[in-house]
Simulated assay, not measured.
Amino acid sequence: MRFSSLLAATTLACLLLSGTAHAASAYPIRDRVLTANKLYRTGELRASQCAERDVKPNDVAAAKRYLTAVLNCLNRSWGAHFKRAGLPFTKARIGFITKPRKYCGDSWGSTSATYCNAERRFLVLLDDSLLEDPSDLYLFGLAAHEYGHHVQNLTGIARAYDRYPFRNKTELNEQTRRMELQAECLSGVFIGSVWDALRERSKEDWETLLEITRNSGDEQDKIRSHGRGRNIAVWLDKGFRATSPQVCNTWTASASKVS
Results as ranks from 00 to 15, higher is better:
G148I: 09
V189T: 15
I191L: 15
C73D: 10
S129D: 11
F89E: 14
I97Q: 06
W251P: 02
V194Y: 07
R46Q: 13
G105H: 02
R199Y: 05
L45H: 04
Y115E: 03
G43W: 02
P28M: 12
Q152H: 09
S135Q: 11
G95A: 15
I97L: 05
I223A: 12
R101D: 12
S244H: 03
V258L: 01
R201K: 13
T114K: 14
D136S: 14
D136W: 01
I97F: 00
A26F: 03
M1S: 12
E44S: 13
D128Q: 08
Q152I: 05
I157F: 00
F240K: 14
A158V: 06
I157G: 02
P57K: 11
E119I: 01
D59N: 13
G188Q: 02
Q49H: 12
A233H: 04
L12E: 11
A51L: 04
A51F: 09
G43H: 04
D31G: 03
R120S: 11
L154S: 10
S48C: 15
W251Q: 08
R65I: 00
S129V: 12
S48H: 15
H145C: 12
A143K: 00
D59A: 15
K91V: 01
D54F: 05
S5Q: 11
K169N: 11
R2E: 03
L6T: 10
A183Y: 04
D136L: 03
A13S: 14
E174C: 01
L71S: 01
R41W: 00
W206Y: 06
N58V: 06
D237Y: 04
T170V: 14
S216D: 07
A8W: 06
F140M: 05
L154H: 06
D128I: 07
N231K: 05
G148N: 12
R65S: 07
L210A: 12
G229M: 02
I232N: 11
D133P: 02
G148S: 09
F89L: 08
A197S: 15
V70D: 10
K99F: 00
L210H: 00
A183W: 05
T42N: 04
A144H: 03
D31H: 01
F140S: 10
L74C: 09
D221F: 13
P88K: 09
T114Y: 08
L181Y: 02
K102E: 15
